[in-house]
Design a protein around this nucleic acid. Structure first.
Length: 116
DNA sequence: TGCGTGACCCAGG
DNA sequence: ACCTGGGCCACGC
């Protein structure tokens, strides 16, 4: 497939992350049909000029912000996430918010079933 | 052509 | 929680 198609699919996948939600680079790649291309997602975000792209909702698979702590980008991302109600502690987002996709419970009930 | 470089990921120690 | 090794791949020099 032409790379421009893949690029568009990745950008679409990023746009598809709703406010208040987050997804890992790898997950975005998978949703775009390009498993294993997390690095490419990162590169695209770095180059994208689209101001409406919600790049701040993309984080590392372990929940950490990808930028170095102390960098302007790091601060910017934390600020944007918090502005959407996403809790960020010590440079990381709770893994619960990193669920690959809404669970069936969440779709049906608006939340996951409590742990038994 | 080769090699280093990433806003990465995953399994192991 | 931290480090390592291997995978991934477009890009620049």
């Amino acid at each position: 497939m032409p790379m421009s198609d893949a690029k568009q699919r990745i950008l679409l996948a990023v746009h598809a992350i709703g406010a208040g939600q987050v997804a890992s680079y790898g997950e975005v790649a998978r949703r775009a049909g390009l498993p294993g291309r997390a690095r490419w997602v990162a590169k695209l975000l770095a180059q994208a000029d689209d101001a409406s792209l919600p790049w701040h909702r993309v984080i590392r698979s372990d929940g950490r912000i990808a930028f170095a702590e102390g960098s302007a980008e790091f601060a910017e991302q934390v600020q944007r996430l918090r502005a959407e109600g996403v809790p960020v502690r010590n440079g990381r987002v709770s893994q619960a918010l990193l669920a690959k996709r809404p669970s069936l419970d969440a779709l049906l009930w608006g939340h996951d079933a409590p742990l038994s």
